[in-house]
Simulated scan of single mutants.
Amino acid sequence: MTAVAAKGGAWGWGHWLWLAPCLMFGALLAGSAIGETTIAPQTIVKVLANRLTGAHYAVDRIDAGIIWNYRLSRSVMAGCCGAGLALAGVVLQALLRNPLADPYLMGISAGASTGAVLVAVAGWGAGAVTLSSGAMVGAVGAFILVTLLAGAAGGSAGRGSTMQASGTIILAGIAGSSLFNALTAFIIARSASAEQARGLMFWLMGNLSGVRWDDTRLAVPTALIGLLVCLWYRRALDAFTFGADSAASLGIAVRRVRGILIASVALVTAVMVSRVGAIGFVGLVVPHAVRMLVGSHHARLVPISALAGALFLIAADIVSRIIVEGQVLPIGVITSLIGAPCFALILLRGAHAK
């Protein structure tokens, strides 16, 4: 029986090894084909062949420009953001033992937005600090603030149940998110021109319209680093789901591992937010959906969540381009329309489980 199970597990991993690239290629193909005007898949393949292999297929120059310079780059960026934010949700839910934890609800995305706006508009760092570095500082600061606030609230209320602690963390995250969103709005109102303010407010809702290949050169390695870190510490994440004490009893260096994982979450969130703005609910919805399919074992949950997050955000980007004729909506609008009902369902399930 063990041999059969091992064989089945090995087949399953082999299955995913070839299926994942096929799914990603199909999603990128759809993201490049569907939009204000539909482009045939064979045209996209010819453009890719011309660009990547030096082939000389005859392709309309306008179609080639739309595919390579606009749709494909934003689809790649959407995939990186979806994978990174889904991984951040997986890590936060394991470390905090909270099914509602994700970078958006925990205020990490809002903190990253504040840091990025400080650099871009207020001139923080005097040109020596990059947009991603500013977002990183803001993300880490937001997480520290939310953690301290949740700890203070928990300490003043005495030791409570796991559900009460979970609620405290979420309330602290909402408070932190509101604070950093207010700071961001204040900075924009005080320092940005009218034209900058319009662009920034659209960007803060999640905007892929201005994404080009230069943005993906940072996003792709960041998403891959986040995936590799999570896979390396997959057993530690399994242990953290039972609490820090359980993890320590298994020989895990709790402080060091927790610090590395939190730094990875902050890095991934900061890079993605600095490029496309705050996109909500990906880290909440995707891990829950994947967990229902493959269980809570992080050896499976981590890679499949990354794949599902990439596919989800590419699909959301396609919807944002076609749902309103002649207009491209911020992608954060689409993810919130999907994520808010899912958030409500999770809350209801938690209430019925009490």
Rank of each mutant, 00 (worst) to 15 (best):
A6S: 10
I67K: 03
P21Q: 01
F281M: 01
A64M: 10
S264T: 15
G127H: 07
Y70H: 08
M77Q: 04
G277S: 06
L171E: 05
A185F: 05
R258D: 01
A239E: 03
L250N: 03
H288G: 07
A306F: 10
G65S: 12
F240R: 04
A142G: 05
G54R: 08
V137Q: 00
V4S: 11
L267I: 04
G35L: 10
G79P: 04
T269L: 06
V282H: 08
Q93Y: 05
D245Q: 15
M292A: 15
G151C: 03
S264I: 03
G251V: 11
R74T: 02
R198T: 11
R97S: 08
A266S: 13
S209I: 01
L224V: 15
S320K: 06
V137P: 01
A150T: 05
Q327V: 15
L100K: 09
D245R: 14
A192C: 03
T269G: 04
I188P: 04
A185W: 00
A244M: 05
K46D: 10
A306L: 04
L293I: 13
G65W: 01
T114Q: 07
A278G: 06
V129R: 01
N98D: 05
L118D: 02
L148W: 10
A153R: 14
G54T: 07
L29E: 04
L179D: 06
I188C: 06
F240G: 08
S193L: 06
A165G: 13
A175N: 03
L347V: 14
G123L: 07
V91D: 08
G158I: 07
A299G: 15
I170M: 12
I331V: 15
S209K: 11
T43I: 11
A247I: 05
T222R: 05
V91N: 12
V302A: 03
G332C: 04
A263T: 10
A139M: 09
A175Q: 08
Y104L: 09
V76S: 02
G210T: 10
K46H: 10
L347W: 10
H288N: 12
A153W: 13
